[in-house]
Design a protein around this nucleic acid. Structure first.
Length: 269
DNA sequence: AGTATAACCTGTCTGC
DNA sequence: TGCAGACAGGTTATAC
């Protein structure tokens, strides 16, 4: 479910609530969450230490404590709540009386534990591509990623190239850039690369600003509020509706078992 | 190196 | 009403 804008909003809220606080207790309710350690190890590593900050890399959240860092991915249905949910997998209790609950209906989310100094050099963080909102992500940088003959939509979903885009925001970014999702990535002109680059940044910035996209009540900010960006989507989940640019019909296609939404008139094949 | 498929999970919606 | 199948915001192991 959560892509970069959702994770960024969650990160900000968790950071505001808990950064600088002492972790007084930690409960693993579902051991399958843990990818590289046992419940006893993570408790031993984190309890009684201070959370320095909550950072984000791609769709991962990094809870950076003094010695160790907890790396969390929400996958399809994970979320963080400030009250107990009915699908709680992990509980963090901070002094004084700040509780955070990781809730995850489909139980696909993951957590890794690392020594803080090693996090960036270990999987899964070390293999992530460029941050699309960083200074390093320029139209030229995008062009250097578009060197293989793959469909551009699939390339944008590849987290080892660009970290943070998911199924919603790739469709939105390609629409804004007026690039067809099935285009061979190598075939994009300089002008199209600039448009796509702008489309990616504009989409992500606006989605962050509007606190992400909530469809079926799954995504919530930790305070319990749904996002508002579902009201501003241009093509995603709008098959059969009018293109906001030209008024013709929005289409849905399948690429690698996943839906892409586009306007065939505005986005040339 | 690329893709395709299944797998991991649980729920909702659609059509018969 | 029941039931099968498709589908859902993500990633990864395995097989070509």
């Amino acid at each position: 479910m959560p892509e970069l804008p959702e994770v960024e909003n969650i990160r900000r809220r968790l950071n505001d609530r808990a950064a600088g606080r002492l972790l007084s207790d930690l409960h693993v309710r579902d051991e399958r969450l843990l990818q590289n350690c046992a419940p006893g190890e993570i408790r031993e590593a984190l309890v009684d230490s201070c959370l320095n900050e909550v950072e984000r890399r791609g769709k991962y959240m990094l809870f950076t404590f003094e010695e160790h860092t907890l790396v969390n991915h929400l996958r399809m249905s994970g979320r963080w709540l400030e009250e107990e949910g009915d699908r709680t997998r992990l509980v963090l209790r901070f002094e004084p009386n700040v509780n955070l609950f990781m809730d995850d209906l489909r139980r696909l989310g993951t957590a890794h534990l690392f020594e803080t100094e090693n996090v960036m050099d270990r999987p899964p963080i070390d293999g992530l591509g460029v941050e699309p909102l960083s200074e390093g992500f320029t139209p030229e940088a995008l062009g250097q990623l578009c060197t293989t003959g793959r469909e551009v939509k699939r390339l944008l979903l590849d987290q080892s190239r660009i970290a943070g885009l998911g199924n919603i925001y790739t469709s939105e970014a390609l629409f804004r850039g007026r690039v067809h999702p099935e285009r061979d990535a190598r075939s994009l002109s300089k002008e199209e690369l600039v448009r796509l680059h702008d489309g990616i940044r504009e989409t992500l910035r606006k989605a962050i600003q509007h606190e992400g996209t909530s469809f079926d009540g799954l995504y919530r900010t930790p305070s319990g509020q749904p996002g508002r960006f579902q009201h501003r989507l241009l093509v995603y989940d709008r098959e059969g509706e009018d293109c906001p640019r030209c008024g013709r019909e929005i289409h849905r296609i399948k690429q690698g078992q996943r839906s892409s939404f586009l306007c065939p008139n505005c986005q040339e094949g």
